[in-house]
Design a protein around this nucleic acid. Structure first.
Lengths: 257, 257
DNA sequence: CTTGACTTTGACCTTAGGTCAGGGTCGACG
DNA sequence: CGTCGACCCTGACCTAAGGTCAAAGTCAAG
């Protein structure tokens, strides 16, 4: 009268594989049941109960290494632990929900990298007549800035929002983009640098950009950010350097290199 | 003018560890970026974009081995795949929610093993005056039955529900429980067996129990189920055998052993 | 008496990384 | 100038929660 079910039946009952059951035996999570004459495992209902308990906890995300202690605790301790497991599970569910919503951003390419506010700023730049290349370069700068100085990123967005209100400044920036293709010794660079520096000094809101940047970060990072991508454009490098020199001589504190 | 961010900054930006990024490089999921003079990896914004894309998909449950193909597909294919990922994620979320609700059952011990309907039946048995030991034994039987013959379990519940409506039958079953402690050769066993068999034959709804069981399963399993736990109670074994013999001689088809 | 389905053990594979060891770089401080 | 702490490099091994494969014993059926 060999009573009890075989391992395959126990597995089907608990909704796991045979391997999983044996795994639990090896971990000591479920005691080995009685064996019949030929050495087959025979599971009784208490074994099945234990198996289902372990399975339910495991599927709720409790690590197998913790389940033993959990099921061994006294009832009120167990209830508390169970509530904690439930809380963590709820947390995980909510995380997955936000994760799902984030998937939409990945579908939209670059939008995945920047917060909504920054994307709005890029849209506005496009509206102001910047070419898509220019907008793309600006996006790249913002991504880099956020990676380098995450703390100050929101503030810098505010500053740039103000800067885009200054139509004179916007016009100058467009000219700077044109300077990209000039020869490094083109005399117009000197001229443009003076105009840009003057505009910076004329509008204190604009000065907040280099000032804020410098306050939030160290000189090295400032350089990395502000001179980013100049390897390919010597004219731009010279322009930036000239503007920085002019601002410095006007008393603005800008780190070197 | 070493432009680009270091691996630690890229990791912080994407919300992963340095090890994870290197892991992605080894899998070819994210191309190795440029190296600076000292061999350090330098990440540009396109690297960061890729990293965030991979990360978002990975956290949405897409296996790393599939992410490469997914991100390499043409836009409309990508959109379709993304929708599929989203669907699976939603499925997973719903599964976790039911899992969370199931945790309450584990807290209630045995309730984890049986569906609500079976639990209700046990409650009703308790109300009918069966002792908690008897109810527990019955629960054990149901768990075993469900493991052995999951398909027929619901039908058998219906049959038992009807059986509990038969007050005469319920009274007899209680007497059978009392017989557990009798000597195997107690003459009252013969008497009781006759009463039980007569009751089975008098109420066709009761006969549905052995008939249904036999129809759904093979003889071996029937034996396992019906003689389960008799090792310890020789009186019970004799009682069962007698009842089976009487039913058989009355034309009811019951498998041997 | 053989066939196919089931069981046993043990050794190795998998995914998505983590840990450790041994060594090279960088910026800052004394 | 040395050296300290914080980074970075590679490569080898470790982890969880099983899955796969192999060799061999068991069981019920045809």
């Amino acid at each position: 009268m060999t009573s009890g079910v075989t391992i395959a039946q126990a597995a089907a009952f608990a909704g796991v594989t045979i391997k999983t059951i044996r795994h639990y035996h090896r971990l000591g999570l479920v005691d080995e049941p009685r064996r019949d004459g030929s050495g087959y495992r025979r599971y009784g209902s208490s074994d099945l109960l234990r198996l289902v308990q372990v399975r339910t906890l495991a599927e709720s995300g409790v690590p197998l290494s913790e389940i033993g202690a959990l099921l061994g605790a006294d009832p009120q301790r167990f209830a508390a632990d169970l509530a904690e497991v439930k809380r963590r599970l709820t947390e995980r569910i909510e995380e997955l929900i936000t994760r799902r919503d984030l998937l939409d951003r990945v579908a939209n390419g670059d939008r995945a990298l920047l917060p909504d506010r920054a994307c709005a700023l890029l849209d506005r730049a496009a509206d102001l007549g910047f070419t898509s290349d220019e907008v793309a370069a600006y996006r790249e700068g913002m991504v880099l800035a956020r990676a380098l100085v995450p703390d100050g990123f929101d503030d810098s967005l505010t500053e740039v929002e103000h800067a885009l209100d200054d139509t004179r400044f916007v016009a100058l920036i467009k000219q700077c983009w044109a300077a990209k293709d000039w020869e490094p010794d083109d005399p117009r660079i000197e001229e443009l640098a003076t105009a840009v520096a003057d505009r910076f000094l004329a509008n204190p809101a604009l000065l907040a950009i280099p000032n804020g940047l410098q306050a939030r970060t160290d000189a090295t990072r400032y350089g990395l950010l502000n001179h980013h991508g100049e390897d390919q454009e010597p004219a731009m490098a010279r322009l930036t350097t000239l503007v920085e020199t002019k601002l410095r001589s006007a008393g603005v504190d800008i780190p070197h290199q």
